[in-house]
C-alpha cells in the first residue's frame, strides 16, 4: 500500500503542476485566479495522502482542514476584491452611505 500511495502522490504532484500553465498564460486575471484555485484545491488531497504515507494522518488531517478553509476564504476575498476593483465608484458610494 505504501508503494501505491507513493506512486499516486507523485502522479498527483504532476497533475497539480499542469494548471500552472494557465496561471502563466491566462489572458485575463480571472484565468490566473482560476488556475491558482485549481492548484490549491488539489493540494488538499495531496496533504492527506502524504499523511497516510508517513502514517501520521491524525496530524496531517488537521493541516488539511486548515488549508481547505484558508484556500476557500482567500479565493472568496480575491473574487470580492476583483469586483470592487471593477466598480470603484460603487465602493465609494457604499462607504458614503455609512
Amino acid at each position: 500500500m505504501q508503494t501505491f500511495l507513493l506512486v499516486a502522490a507523485t502522479v498527483l504532484m504532476v497533475v497539480i503542476v499542469i494548471p500552472l500553465v494557465r496561471v502563466w498564460k491566462g489572458p485575463t486575471v480571472f484565468d490566473r485566479l482560476l488556475g491558482a484555485n485549481a492548484m490549491a484545491t488539489k493540494t488538499i488531497v495531496l496533504i492527506a495522502m502524504i499523511g497516510y504515507f508517513y502514517d501520521r494522518i491524525g496530524m496531517f488531517i488537521d493541516i488539511t482542514l486548515a488549508y481547505a478553509a484558508l484556500g476557500f476564504i482567500s479565493s472568496l476575498a480575491l473574487a470580492k476584491y476583483m469586483t470592487a476593483e471593477a466598480h470603484p465608484e460603487e465602493a465609494q458610494t457604499e462607504e458614503k452611505d455609512e
Binding site: 485575463t28 480571472f30 485566479l33 482560476l34 479565493s75 473574487a79 476583483m82 469586483t83 471593477a86
Partner: peptide, 8 residues
Amino acid sequence: LARAAMDS
C-alpha cells in the same frame, strides 16, 4: 469567481 468576472 464567475460572478466577479461577469460584474467586471
